[in-house]
Simulated scan of single mutants.
Amino acid sequence: MKSLTKMLPALGLVLGATLAMAMNFASPSNFDASLKVWTPDEEEPFGYLDITGLQVGTHFRCEGTSSECRVQFTDDDPENGIKTVMQAGVYTPL
């Protein structure tokens, strides 16, 4: 029992760190379903390709740890809108 009580502070630290990381990730409820979904694409006029309606795992994958795979912009405007990253990774069409 003494060994368990000695481990409690470490377990609390691990639990706290896990919860802190979980709270920093954007939740799907934070995204506006009425806005388009975009992915970075240098060949597009404003640097983003519209992938609204495409599903992860069916039409494309987001792999790796890039800063953005799927994003939304305020007013559906990739040129002037404020970007919200929905999912990190690199966009790979299937």
Score class of each variant (00 low, 15 high):
Met1Gln: 04
Lys2Val: 08
Ser3His: 14
Leu4Gly: 07
Thr5Asn: 08
Leu8Asn: 05
Pro9Ser: 09
Pro9Gln: 05
Leu11Thr: 06
Gly12His: 07
Gly12Arg: 04
Leu15Cys: 08
Gly16Asp: 00
Thr18Asp: 00
Thr18His: 02
Leu19Met: 12
Asn24Pro: 01
Pro28His: 10
Asn30Val: 12
Asn30Ala: 15
Asn30Met: 14
Asp32Ala: 02
Val37Met: 07
Trp38Gly: 01
Trp38His: 03
Trp38Asp: 04
Thr39Met: 06
Asp41Val: 02
Glu42Gln: 13
Glu42Ser: 14
Glu43Trp: 01
Glu44His: 05
Phe46Gln: 09
Gly47His: 01
Asp50Val: 06
Gly53Phe: 12
Leu54Ala: 02
Gly57Val: 07
Thr58Ile: 04
Phe60Glu: 05
Cys62Val: 03
Gly64Met: 09
Ser66Lys: 09
Ser67Met: 11
Ser67Gln: 10
Ser67Trp: 13
Glu68His: 08
Glu68Leu: 10
Glu68Ala: 15
Cys69Gln: 01
Arg70Met: 14
Arg70Tyr: 02
Arg70Gln: 12
Val71Asp: 04
Phe73Ser: 11
Asp76Val: 05
Asp76Glu: 11
Asp77Pro: 05
Pro78Ala: 07
Glu79Leu: 13
Lys83Thr: 13
Val85Ile: 09
Ala88Tyr: 07
Ala88Thr: 10
Gly89Ala: 02
Val90Glu: 14
Tyr91Gly: 00
Pro93Met: 09
